[in-house]
């Protein structure tokens, strides 16, 4: 019990002193996950719009696949990317393995189905009367689609935040493709795993507290955004 309390107090001291190593790890985590999320959003939103507005063969199959991929095991994604990027793999010539770029690719693959699938759900949940109302006011098909996306904005923002939650907490994929190299590919989750293994709980706990705080902030943001969207509808 005493050692836990001691570890906690040392962890808090690390956070309060903004230890340099801690700072670097946090910034890299935010950089990797933030970039992955932006990439997943840039790819995911047009896909969700396409699935929401167009009818084409295999549309149902793609939606089912996206829903399934929302639960992709990170280690499986990590292994897949590893095989692609390893020296003997088809993309080995890019020399991306054990770089932050490889970690971003892995996290993008993990976040993309979440952003695309949840955004699609938000778009198709918009009352069909919005389409008709826009049409009666002389909107072009593109303007109608934009009006619907605007109505789905709270759901889309929730989808992006859910994607962020997924990548910030992820460890398996980035550990495999990033290699957890100190000062280069070491992020919060991989450091926690490693430091715990080493029995060095202070840093692991400090990062755990920060990760939990970030997770709490993400969930709070999600809660308020959803509340705002629902309030608009129910008021």
């Amino acid at each position: 019990m005493d050692s836990i309390i001691e570890s906690f107090s040392k962890a808090l001291s690390l956070i309060l002193n903004l230890d340099r190593e801690l700072r670097e790890i946090i910034f890299l985590s935010i950089e990797v996950s933030g970039t992955a999320l932006i990439a997943a959003t840039i790819i995911g939103l047009p896909v969700s719009a396409l699935l929401g507005f167009k009818r084409f063969p295999l549309r149902g199959a793609i939606i089912s696949m996206l829903n399934t991929f929302m639960g992709l095991p990170p280690v499986a994604v990590g292994l897949f990317i590893y095989l692609l990027l390893s020296r003997s793999g088809p993309l080995g010539f890019l020399a991306l393995l054990y770089t932050p770029t490889a970690m971003i690719i892995a996290q993008t693959i993990l976040a993309f189905p979440i952003v695309a699938s949840l955004s699609h759900s938000a778009i198709v949940s918009v009352d069909p009367i919005i389409r008709q109302a826009s049409m009666t006011l002389g909107a072009t098909p593109l303007q109608i689609s934009l009006a619907i996306i605007r109505e789905a904005r709270y759901g889309i923002i929730s989808a992006v935040i859910a994607g962020l939650g997924r990548v910030m907490a992820e460890v398996g994929a980035i550990l495999i493709v990033g290699g957890n190299i100190a000062g280069f590919t070491r992020v919060m989750t991989t450091t926690i795993a490693m430091e715990t293994d080493k029995g060095n709980f202070e840093l692991a706990l400090a990062l755990g507290i920060i990760l939990l705080t970030i997770s709490l902030l993400i969930n709070l943001a999600l809660y308020f955004i959803q509340k705002r969207g629902v309030a608009g509808v129910n008021r």
């Binding site: 009367i129 919005i130 109302a133 826009s134 009666t136 006011l137 002389g138 009006a147 605007r150």
Partner: peptide, 18 residues
């Protein structure tokens, strides 16, 4: 489209934007 922009219909369920 030009003609559709010279006329308009108000539906019974108006379709109010959020």
């Amino acid at each position: 489209l030009q003609l559709r922009r010279r006329i308009t219909l108000v539906l019974p369920k108006v379709g109010v934007f959020n």
